Computed example of a mutant assay.
Amino acid sequence: MSRFLKICRDFILPVVIGLLIAFAIKQFLFTIVKVDGSSMSPNLHNNERVALLKTAKIKRDLVIVFNANGVDGTKVFTNNSPVYYVKRVIALPGDTVKYTSKGNLYINGKKQSQSYITKKQRTTGTLDPINLTGKGFTLYSLGEQENWPKTYFKVPKNKYFVMGDNRAKSNDGRFWGLVPKSKVTGVVKVFPWNSHRSVINNYK
């Protein structure tokens, strides 16, 4: 074997294989992303780095990243470049949603904990920004009030209803509707030193 081939086998080939594996992992399985903004405060902070699992199953109450370009109809996007939002999944395909004037969330008629936010956030934080304090909402009434492109009685197939944890400051599904599955990049997981990891990584 020539010296050149030996160098290729012993040094260049392992490097190339390592780079290809790293690219595949980042492209299809796992990557690190940075939180931009305060819409998930205090559970996630601006500029905090989190892991994004691209193949994880999307479940209710988990936090996802999605491309809001073409989803958020309240903003004008100047080009086709992706603009990523970080929000919590409130309702899955097939779910009905009822949010009461007292700040209680019901999915398919079952009351949800919402322990990841304070009682104040459940009322003034959630209802004040959409002028529904003392009223509450369903998916249909919310869509009617906020002029969603389409209104729904329940979440349709391949779509999700999302909200930020910092609901008083979050531009989320309350204003513009549902997130298509095709726009979701992955599920967020935080590192062990995050004191709020229990309500991000495995909240139930």
Score class of each variant (00 low, 15 high):
residue 65 V to W: 01
residue 67 N to A: 06
residue 67 N to Q: 05
residue 68 A to N: 06
residue 69 N to Y: 12
residue 70 G to W: 09
residue 71 V to D: 08
residue 72 D to R: 11
residue 72 D to P: 08
residue 72 D to V: 06
residue 73 G to M: 11
residue 73 G to W: 05
residue 73 G to E: 14
residue 73 G to K: 14
residue 74 T to Q: 14
residue 74 T to D: 15
residue 74 T to Y: 13
residue 75 K to I: 10
residue 75 K to G: 06
residue 75 K to M: 15
residue 75 K to W: 09
residue 76 V to Y: 15
residue 76 V to S: 15
residue 76 V to H: 15
residue 76 V to L: 15
residue 77 F to I: 07
residue 79 N to Y: 10
residue 80 N to Q: 13
residue 83 V to W: 06
residue 83 V to H: 12
residue 83 V to I: 06
residue 83 V to M: 01
residue 84 Y to N: 08
residue 84 Y to T: 02
residue 84 Y to L: 09
residue 85 Y to C: 00
residue 87 K to M: 04
residue 87 K to S: 03
residue 87 K to D: 04
residue 87 K to N: 03
residue 87 K to T: 02
residue 88 R to C: 02
residue 88 R to V: 02
residue 88 R to A: 02
residue 89 V to M: 00
residue 90 I to P: 02
residue 90 I to M: 10
residue 91 A to G: 10
residue 91 A to K: 07
residue 91 A to W: 04
residue 92 L to A: 05
residue 92 L to I: 08
residue 92 L to V: 03
residue 92 L to T: 09
residue 93 P to R: 05
residue 93 P to L: 06
residue 95 D to I: 03
residue 95 D to V: 05
residue 96 T to P: 06
residue 96 T to C: 08
residue 97 V to Q: 08
residue 98 K to R: 15
residue 98 K to V: 13
residue 99 Y to Q: 11
residue 100 T to C: 07
residue 100 T to A: 05
residue 101 S to D: 13
residue 101 S to K: 15
residue 101 S to W: 01
residue 102 K to H: 09
residue 102 K to Q: 13
residue 102 K to M: 07
